[in-house]
């Protein structure tokens, strides 16, 4: 295994651990973009990240995770202010290994059409499958793609919604915060004007072997932390089995390969954006073949 030469991929911040994963005084080996790394926790649990040649990499602690980069000029970390709001429940859902391209994981997260079939009776109902039209826009100041005005009928949109009602029309906003991270805002139970924030940060070990982290900043005074984690993990393990069965594992990026429908608007925008950046890592570039 060798480190990638893709400078777009190298110049990103990636999560390599969640808070508390490496116990004080312990170490853990991991891989980022093909590069083996060792994480060492000091007596207070703070992590040092080193390459095999002993270089110490920079770290940032944010959103319950520890981030590092292999690049000299990484894309800035996203600003997600919800994690700083004092009345939010900030939840660390751990991490889940997924054998596929990081870009397929992002794309699945953006896709509302799969809710009914993959998350039946939770995020979607088999008789309410329509994805209503929504807008996508590139926010040039932060170089992020946003999809807004998304709406979907959900039997149990969150742990607190599951306990409170039999279903609701949920509002969604998606934010693609880097080629390898994406987040969503969705209706929070009992709040008219504020939204729950759920993130997905991906650590690609290789082009087709990833670790996904899902920190959340939720508005919920009722549910236990354990039940909020349980809800999110249940959802993500339903996605995982679908993701791992997709072929090819790399995300095909020629416009010919998959016909876009309206529901796929955000994924078309994502693929174009990746192409414009010149990313190759995790992609199957059919035109170049």
């Amino acid at each position: 295994m060798t480190i990638t030469s893709d400078s777009v991929a190298l110049n990103q911040w990636f999560p390599v651990a969640y808070d508390g994963q490496v116990k004080p005084g312990a170490s853990r080996d991991t891989i980022l973009l093909g590069e083996p790394l060792t994480l060492r926790a000091d007596a207070s649990g703070d992590l040092t990240v080193q390459t095999q040649t002993g270089d110490t990499l920079p770290t940032i602690r944010a959103f319950t995770l520890v981030f590092t980069t292999l690049g000299d000029n990484p894309r800035p970390m996203p600003v997600i202010q919800e994690f700083d709001e004092p009345d939010r429940r900030v939840v660390n859902c751990g991490s889940v290994g997924v054998q596929t391209s990081p870009c397929r994981i992002v794309e699945n997260f953006l896709d509302m059409a799969h809710f009914c079939f993959v998350h039946t009776d939770i995020l979607g109902a088999v008789d309410e499958t329509e994805v209503l039209s929504y807008k996508t826009r590139l926010h040039e100041d932060v170089d992020e793609i946003w999809a807004t005005d998304c709406k979907f009928f959900q039997p149990a949109a969150s742990q607190s919604a599951r306990d409170a009602s039999a279903g609701q029309l949920t509002d969604y906003i998606y934010r693609i915060t880097s080629p390898f991270s994406v987040m969503l805002y969705k209706t929070a139970m009992g709040y008219a004007d504020r939204l729950d924030a759920i993130c997905l940060f991906i650590q690609p070990k290789t082009e087709t072997d990833c670790i996904a982290y899902m920190p959340m900043a939720l508005l919920d005074d009722v549910s236990s932390t354990t039940s909020m984690i349980d809800f999110q993990q249940t959802i993500f393990l339903q996605d995982r089995i679908i993701l791992e069965n997709q072929r090819p594992r790399l995300l095909p990026i020629s416009p010919r390969s998959e016909m876009p429908t309206r529901a796929d608007l955000s994924s078309v925008a994502y693929r174009r954006w990746l192409k414009d950046k010149g990313l190759r890592f995790g992609l199957l570039l059919e035109d170049a073949a």
Binding site: Y18, G20, Q21, N92, C93, G94, S95, S224, T225, T226, S227, I229, D230, Q233
Partner: peptide, 10 residues
């Protein structure tokens, strides 16, 4: 009774 097995290692 929910036990936070992962990531909490309860």
């Amino acid at each position: 009774v929910a036990v936070d097995f992962f990531p909490g290692q309860e």
